[in-house]
Design a binder for these strands. Structure first.
Lengths: 262, 262
DNA sequence: GCTATTTTCTCGCATGATGAGAAAAGGGAC
DNA sequence: GTCCCTTTTCTCATCATGCGAGAAAATAGC
């Protein structure tokens, strides 16, 4: 085989390029904005996106927000709760970060470590975390929320696995104190890290459930200087609402797993 | 928004349907065969596949064999060694199973359990394993190969984590004996399970490396009645060649990770 | 060597994708 | 509520381009 001159289904290439651009953008910009950035006529871009949505390759999540669709996710491999959450979370987190004016992050618990998976908001580079980075769970807001949501058996295993090196003067280094803190976190529904992982860093975290299982956590970070305890309630409300929205969306994606294909 | 009557980019739908059909088929049938099954003209199907290959959404792996391409895998999330192996392995396993006339499986080690990920060959339904199923590692050929490839530290952790319930009269139930067996396996480069997981089941397994890391294992199973010790050499050679081919292909997919996009 | 199959190519035709611009639908500020 | 701006959808004429059948070339299998 291998001769050489075949027509190239150019409309397919263009549509796939659009698909990639939208997926890469993770729902942050509008279709029109992405189209302009790509130098594609807006009308054409919309037609492509619309078709991709109808096909289930993209999903529309609110106005001017498109994310990878269930059919696309299913195409490349098993669609698990964690992946669905990551895909669903990006746009919500960006909006929340813009609204709160601080950095918002999403993390999951992998073994004993918290993996930072998404980071949104201006000044995101200033924070010590990087996407993909893993940190010990016992000292961060995200970690405390995730540990608190663990089944008792696994939580006790973790508590028995110390020691807990101090990163700052306020880091919790005692298993008993950590157990008490986790109980408090579970009861309150959110965790506060006031300079435990780094001096001058204040952050609030809440759990994110899909169905009844906590699969990730969200946090909002600011410097202690910016932190106004009075604003905590607003931050917690924002985080909680975002977590609920993401959880519902992820659940819906997973449900469409078994949906009939056109 | 949401009015109603927009043209549908029908060529896109058709091409995507073809893409899904090919990916679902995992490289087992020829493009022409898939096309006939779908009721699509062969010439059209080839044009679509050819374009998708050029775009990197499909990859051609030998004659009449297409699998998911790197650009597609990269589209939804990180492309890791395990996923690359799973994608690359399917067609090779089907060919090998046909050649050896027995059931060939691929498994990975997740924690203490072996996950069965691919199963190929006629009579595949008769075997007790199912795709996605997890079994204890200490008693199967796949498990022994994977345990033998573990770093010493983790292997010892596993050995200390007994007990090892007997599934048949021949199951290895003693940590010391298992350690000795794993050493033998590591030295020989393959494992033999002669009725350890189920009576009358004989299977040979070899490791599958991507680069220098063992990420999975392959096994060929037959009943002890069918097993001819003299044929072991041929089976081992086949498994080894297949493992090498899959490893090389997966490596190549991972390498194209950083390749420039058209 | 041969035959059966897969893959590529040629080419006219009508499908259908395209892009500009206008109209509709929101969104946000006030 | 009103106004303004952006995003999204629609209309339509034009023509690129995807389509399919059949022939030719390249392989696979023997």
């Amino acid at each position: 085989m291998m001769r050489k001159g075949t027509p190239k289904l150019s409309s397919l290439s263009r549509a796939l390029a659009m698909l990639e651009a939208i997926v890469a953008d993770a729902g942050v910009r509008s279709v029109a904005a992405v189209a302009r950035a790509q130098g594609v006529p807006v009308a054409t871009a919309h037609r492509q996106v619309r078709s991709l949505v109808e096909q289930g390759y993209l999903a529309r999540h609110g106005p001017r927000c498109h994310i990878a669709g269930p059919r696309l996710l299913r195409l490349t491999g098993a669609l698990d709760a964690e992946k669905a959450v990551t895909v669903a979370a990006a746009p919500v987190l960006h909006r929340l970060a813009a609204g709160l004016g601080c950095v918002v992050q999403l993390g999951t618990l992998d073994g004993d470590m918290v993996t930072y998976r998404i980071k949104a908001g201006s000044g995101a580079e200033a924070l010590l975390t990087r996407v993909g980075m893993q940190l010990e769970a016992y000292c961060s807001g995200l970690g405390k929320v995730l540990l608190a949501a663990l089944p008792e058996r696994e939580r006790e295993d973790y508590l028995a696995s110390g020691p807990y090196p101090a990163l700052t003067a306020r880091t919790i280094t005692d298993a008993g104190a950590l157990r008490a803190e986790l109980t408090r976190v579970a009861k309150r529904g959110h965790a506060i890290d006031d300079g435990e992982v780094a001096d001058r860093l204040y952050c609030i975290a809440v759990p994110l459930s899909v169905g009844d299982r906590v699969v990730a956590a969200l946090s909002a970070s600011r410097t202690t200087a910016q932190a106004a305890p009075a604003a905590d309630a607003r931050v917690i409300a924002g985080l909680t609402a975002a977590a609920a929205e993401i959880g519902a969306l992820a659940r819906q994606m997973l449900a469409s797993e078994s949906a009939a294909v056109t």
